[in-house]
């Protein structure tokens, strides 16, 4: 399982990466904002194809390219449009919720998140088996 974690705050990013590693997901690529993520998803270097990711976990509020922008771009791309997407957010308006739901996300992770809440959402999204 190859994950892409997108957040403009390094602290949040590394927390997420640690939590994911604790849940058994070690192959995690970090992106510092939406455009970095888009670059990692799309750009070809010297004929080398970009990596494909099994799940994108992206923050909502980021400068320049927000999580919603990234989601729109991913869903609009022929090769990427099926990629599962989890949105990480603290505040939200009705409009952004509906917009991201319409574009198709697997789950919302609400900040501040914990290992338990992330695990619960990964279960919800079908990446983890329920253990209870």
């Amino acid at each position: 399982m190859k994950f892409l974690v997108v957040d403009d705050k390094a602290s949040v990013r590394s927390t997420m990466v640690d939590i994911l590693a604790g849940l058994g997901f070690n192959d995690v690529t970090e992106a510092v904002d939406g455009s970095d993520a888009w670059f990692k998803l799309k750009a070809e270097f010297e004929g080398v194809k970009p990596e494909t990711f099994d799940l994108i976990i992206s923050d909502m509020e980021m400068p320049a390219m927000t999580g919603l922008d990234l989601l729109k771009a991913v869903r609009g791309d022929r090769n990427l449009k099926e990629t599962p997407f989890i949105m990480v957010t603290s505040i939200n308006t009705k409009e952004t919720i509906i917009a991201s739901m319409k574009l198709g996300i697997k789950a919302y992770i609400i900040k501040p998140f914990t290992k338990e809440s992330v695990a619960a959402k990964l279960v919800q999204a079908g990446f983890l088996k329920k253990t209870d």
Partner: peptide, 14 residues
């Protein structure tokens, strides 16, 4: 039935 948490749902449904 939704994937949203209660708070978000409350927001959407006003």
């Amino acid at each position: 039935a939704t994937i949203l948490d209660p708070d978000f749902l409350a927001q959407v449904l006003e």
